[in-house]
Amino acid sequence: MAVDESGQAFTHPLYNVMAQLPGVSLGLTTADQLLTWGASNSLFVFPMATSCCGIEFMAAACGRFDLDQMGTIARGTPRQCDVMVIAGTITVKMAPRVKKLWDQMPEPKWAIAMGSCAISGDFYRDIYSVVPGVDTFMPVDVYVPGCPPNPDQLFAGMRRLQEKIRMRRNGEWTEPELRPETFGFKSPNLPRIGDPRREASLDEAQLDAVINLDPGGGLRRPDPKGSL
């Protein structure tokens, strides 16, 4: 199901001129590879740590495992992070906040769903207040299954993410992440992001909930007619 992206190809006039000059394409390719190398080797993490998996995330950042080895440090503000690690159960009350923090992160950004609660809600998935998987309202790049996953499994997830970044940047086709479904997963059947069955009204409602998060908190819906 490869997507036809030919209509969206990047055609900047200056780029076209430059691309024809001798040696430029070689230089651009090298620069591109350099940038990819930089992007994949310096992943600052925003720890969206809500529960048990957050403790394992902390353990991964500590002595025995040390996320800093691969250049990963945790920052408290979403503005300076590249990867959001959703570690823990996300509830209905928390979901708009997660979405908002995700929206506040600058592109390019990635998300790792760490632990079965973040992936599918785990055994809380039927509970009235738990979101059955964060991929029902935001895209997820890598799933790290476990309850909670060991720190080394988180490392494997980070490696997978690095590999994915490299392949995407090099234009190679990456298989869509397989969502680790739990056995007999029947309900609640909420369509995931990217699911063709997903209704537009759901997106609209989620956007609405995020924008009207805290009335009086200085947030307002951008005026479509107003200038920036």
Binding site: S51, T89, T91, M94, F123, I127, Y128, S129, V130
Partner: peptide, 25 residues
């Protein structure tokens, strides 16, 4: 309440021996 996971409701739905792994969390 940002992590209200309804554990008490879940305890009503599970048998006695199944509850232990729930309260772990």
């Amino acid at each position: 309440g940002y992590l209200h996971r309804g554990v008490e409701k879940l305890c009503e739905k599970l048998s006695y021996v199944m509850i232990t792994p729930i309260v772990d969390k």
